[in-house]
Amino acid sequence: MSLTHLNVRGEAHMVDVADKPESRREARASGRITMRPETLALLAEGGLPKGDVLATARIAGIQAAKRTHELIPLCHALALSKVAIDFTLDEVESCVEVTATCRLNGRTGVEMEALTAVSVACLTLYDMCKAVDKDMVIDAIRLDAKTGGKSGDYRRGEGVGGGEAAGETVVTGAEGLIVTGQGRGGQVAVGSRCDIASPCVRVKCLAELRERLGVGELSVPLSDLSRPDVGGLKAALKALDPRFAGLDEGRVMCAVNQVMAGDRTPITDDDEVAFFPPVTGG
């Protein structure tokens, strides 16, 4: 799996979502702020000096969700159709649980909006209560669930297809994240090394080929290769995803560890294999 906010040169870029189909997206995130029992009691009674703590934190969370794109550099501005912030006072743990739900019909996920809403609601709770308690701790901010979009549904604790780290194969492309194997939702890794635990090969598709196949980078377990060479890798890719049939269309070059290679060039663990069209520089 690679980071969709990095381009082929490793620079940050905003993902173009113009051609992604619209779908109903929903995300739920949660977090908590732990405080002294006396503080929680004051909060519940409305006895804190800054007034209605929960109402203020709720408005802060909603406002923050709407302004996520101003805070997180590569987030798109979204017209959210719903933002809901809920609080649960937990006297046993002496904390306030904050939950945010965001929804829209659109082309990008809304998990960043939900996470931002929870974060800012927690910060506002801190601000509202800090006059009486400076020991409060904000933690466990996380995505609980998301639905809609190409990367599939996600629910914390149940990875897509079981979530076994070894053997997963994750394909990313121009359209965002496409999980083709037993990928575990929520996992990310940088493209510069294998992102699966077992011996694997890093595959890059460059330039016109990347756009034609809709695949930028992926990791393939070495065990998927019938032969440990480029020809074996091509066969494994075609078995993995029909889009890789495009490797046989037109002239496609290959480099192993950045040196030009052919179908018989051997491949070992953590090799970088790039496929690309004939070069046209100069």
Partner: peptide
């Protein structure tokens, strides 16, 4: 220059009034 044009991994995408396209070898 001859070797750069045929061996160095650069790719050109042209933007024209009709649209964008990758330059062929």
């Amino acid at each position: 220059m001859d070797y750069l044009k045929t061996r160095a991994p650069f790719w050109k995408k042209e933007h024209a009034s009709e649209g964008d396209y990758w330059v062929s070898e």
